[in-house]
Simulated assay, not measured.
Amino acid sequence: MIFGYVRPLYNDETCEKQLKAISEKCQTIYREPHASPKKRHQLEEMLMAIQQGDTIIVERMVALADTTRQLQDILNICEKDSVSIQFCNEAISNNQPLTCTLQQMMKHYIQFQTDVAKQSALIGIANAREHGKTIGRPRKPDVNIQKAISMYHSGNFTLHDIKNETGISKSTLYRSLENSDENR
């Protein structure tokens, strides 16, 4: 059997890219309904279904694993069960000798780590938003901005003085000045 595995990723939330890359090659595709690294029931189900000689196809490494440890564990399971894994994007398989340079292999590894970090960050941001937390740098109070604008227009203060007094940076002050000019 040839199995495929997809799950929502930071740049493919609907799995369209992944499905396009693997659907014609697979007999059965396991599709995770969420991006979370926890409770990946479809992955577990697929790993329970594989038998000797089967093949797993994924679009890229990050679709299959969330950490290098998890990737290694899955590779070990597949090696023990004589199952091959093909990573389409990286053009590598666990049952064929690597025909790439160390530089190319490091590029694949770094891309995997980058994808894992992006995936993790976006999941964290989504969870924070679900719990009502605001994302990003907190806004400066309008009182401080108004005071900084007044100090600037008075001509008696340097930008350094304004920053020390109000906590407003030069870029924030200039952006606020532009906005106040547009509103006039």
Rank of each mutant, 00 (worst) to 15 (best):
N95C: 07
D142Q: 11
T114A: 04
N89H: 13
F112H: 04
G132E: 02
T101A: 01
E90N: 05
H153G: 12
V143R: 12
R129K: 12
Q119W: 00
I123V: 06
K107Y: 02
L98K: 06
Q146C: 09
N89A: 10
Y109T: 13
I149Y: 06
Q103A: 15
I149R: 01
D161Y: 11
K107A: 15
G132F: 04
K107N: 05
K140L: 08
T158F: 11
G132C: 09
R129E: 13
A121Y: 05
S120P: 04
R137S: 05
G155V: 15
S150E: 09
S93H: 02
H131K: 14
D161E: 15
L159K: 06
V116W: 00
I110D: 01
Q104G: 03
V143Q: 14
Y109N: 06
I110P: 00
Y109E: 11
Q113S: 07
I125W: 09
P138S: 14
A91L: 07
F112P: 00
L102Y: 14
N95W: 02
N95S: 10
M106V: 02
P97C: 00
L98I: 04
F112K: 01
T114V: 12
T134Y: 05
I125Q: 15
H160F: 10
G124P: 02
D161A: 15
Q104R: 09
L159F: 15
E90V: 00
K147S: 10
R137V: 10
I123P: 03
N127E: 09
Y152K: 05
S120G: 07
Q103L: 11
R139L: 15
G132Q: 06
M105C: 12
E90M: 02
K118D: 07
H108R: 09
E90Y: 02
C100D: 03
R129H: 05
Q96V: 14
G136V: 03
G136N: 01
N156T: 04
G155S: 13
M151A: 13
K107C: 11
N156V: 01
G155P: 10
D161V: 07
V116R: 00
V116S: 02
Y152L: 11
T114F: 05
A128W: 06
N144V: 05
K147A: 15
I145Q: 02
A91P: 00
H160C: 14
T134D: 10
T114S: 01
E130T: 08
D115N: 13
H160I: 10
A91Y: 05
D142I: 13
N94T: 13
S154M: 12
I110G: 03
M105I: 15
T134A: 12
P97M: 04
Q96R: 08
Q146T: 04
Y152T: 02
Q146H: 07
V143S: 15
E130S: 14
F112M: 06
Q113G: 08
N89I: 02
L122P: 07
Q146L: 08
H108W: 04
E90I: 00
T114K: 03
I145P: 03
P141W: 04
L102C: 11
Q146W: 01
G124A: 11
P141D: 09
